[in-house]
């Protein structure tokens, strides 16, 4: 089949979800203070992505990928389960903006979310090859699980006011 005509299926990634697939997908997600970590294995030509809302699980309820520490572990696990090699994994990190409703205290929710990605990826020995984090804009990213490329556009308000995207859900 002509590769140009081959339509890459798309997937919308909701907050608290993890998506890793051997096939090519264009995974779209929209981030406010949330962070998405994209992992890619060049040897396998496969990628995976998560979307977490808060930095650390506080022990309440289920340990779900709503929390960075859980989401990053689950994503790495999902990649390895599908045949990736840890040493080949590289990461791209996006999000963690300082949007309305996320700045209580000295450190914002976004900053905490970014810090968790930095720490856990370093601990896992996975290099961060690209990132666009922080600031006060929301972001939309489209991650291609086959090529590992990320297309990112910033989400802004036409009137220049700060964004209200506290939970990373598109409005």
């Amino acid at each position: 089949m002509d590769p140009v005509l081959e339509k890459v299926p798309s997937h919308y990634l909701y907050p608290c979800m993890v998506f890793a697939h051997r096939q090519a997908f264009e995974v779209t997600t929209v981030l406010g203070s949330c962070v998405a970590v994209c992992l890619w294995d060049a040897g396998m030509q496969m990628g995976g992505i998560n979307h977490y809302m808060l930095a650390l699980w506080n022990g309440d309820g289920l340990p779900t990928p709503k929390y960075g520490n859980i989401a990053i572990q689950k994503l790495i696990r999902a990649m390895l389960d599908r045949g990736c090699t840890r040493e080949r994994l590289v990461a791209k990190v996006f999000g963690g903006g300082n949007v309305i409703g996320s700045s209580q205290g000295a450190i914002t929710v976004g900053e905490r979310n970014i810090a968790v990605a930095w720490d856990l990826l370093r601990d896992a020995g996975i290099p961060i090859v690209a990132s666009d984090v922080g600031g006060d804009s929301g972001r939309k990213i489209i991650f291609n699980t086959r090529t590992g490329t990320v297309l990112m556009s910033r989400l802004k308000r036409i009137d220049g006011q700060p964004l209200d995207l506290p939970d990373g859900r598109p409005r």
Binding site: D132, I142, L155
Partner: peptide
């Protein structure tokens, strides 16, 4: 639940939010 398959369309409806030119990473 917003129908999010194309959040950009929604954003344009609102006429407040916009996405700038995408950058590749």
């Amino acid at each position: 639940a917003p129908f999010l398959a194309n959040p950009q369309a929604r954003a344009q409806d609102d006429n407040i939010l916009f996405f700038d030119e995408p950058q590749a990473f």
